[in-house]
Amino acid sequence: MVAEASAARPAASKHALFDLAGVSFRVPGRSIIESLDLRMEAGQIHGLIGPNGSGKSTLVKMLARQEVPASGRIHFCGEDIQSQGDRVFARRLAYLPQFMPSTDGMNVEEFVALGRFPWHGTFGRFTVVDRAKVAEAMDQTGVTPFRARLVDTLSGGERQRVWLALLLAQDTQCLVLDEPTSALDISHQTEMLDLVRNLARKRGLSVVVVLHDINMAARICDRLVAMGSGRIVADGTPADIMRADVLERIYGISMGLFTHPDSGIPVAFVR
């Protein structure tokens, strides 16, 4: 168990979080992602942005091993992503899907506890450590007050926090989030993303997050990767991306920027 646990935390500094070389993904009759090269560093928050159909969702699905690339290779923490065992991988990377399934009548605590599966497996005992990790995850996401409620009866924002708690209970070094805010109103979007950023900082997590709102992305990410038609069209810090010409290249419409009066961060708008 000790060996496994240490294996789950490779020396993050030495290797890139993700290293993609020549990665392609096709569906019959169409290529979604074509020969993509990309490197993501550990300990950072990466935002994937781009218009609909640009391939961002497919890319994160490949990063989370939900899809297998047609060609090319993906290294995760220095190892080939396909060579890692299912549970070993699930102890290193937690994934939040875009469309979340109904939770089959489970209450919040039971559901969050499923995040411990990679650690205890099918027959292993649910230990004190497991219990503590679940409690911590629920505390940090603020869902402890409704731990006994059914997940399916929660509001959108609460449910999103419960899912985040499950990901934290997985106790991984890396979170991959596919549009975690798409169903939320503006205040819950902000709350959710701030929570992600604070937790990432506090726990030293690496995060890859797909976001639609460029301003939200610029606010919380360390680095933005913009995709279009299965290729990378821009890659850099929020400051590099938040420029009128770059944004126009990404979204294909004319955009402008102004400086936020309180924080001084640039804010994009459609002209």
Partner: peptide, 9 residues
Amino acid sequence: SFAQSVGLK
């Protein structure tokens, strides 16, 4: 997808 993300074959 969920089974896979918690590492269940």
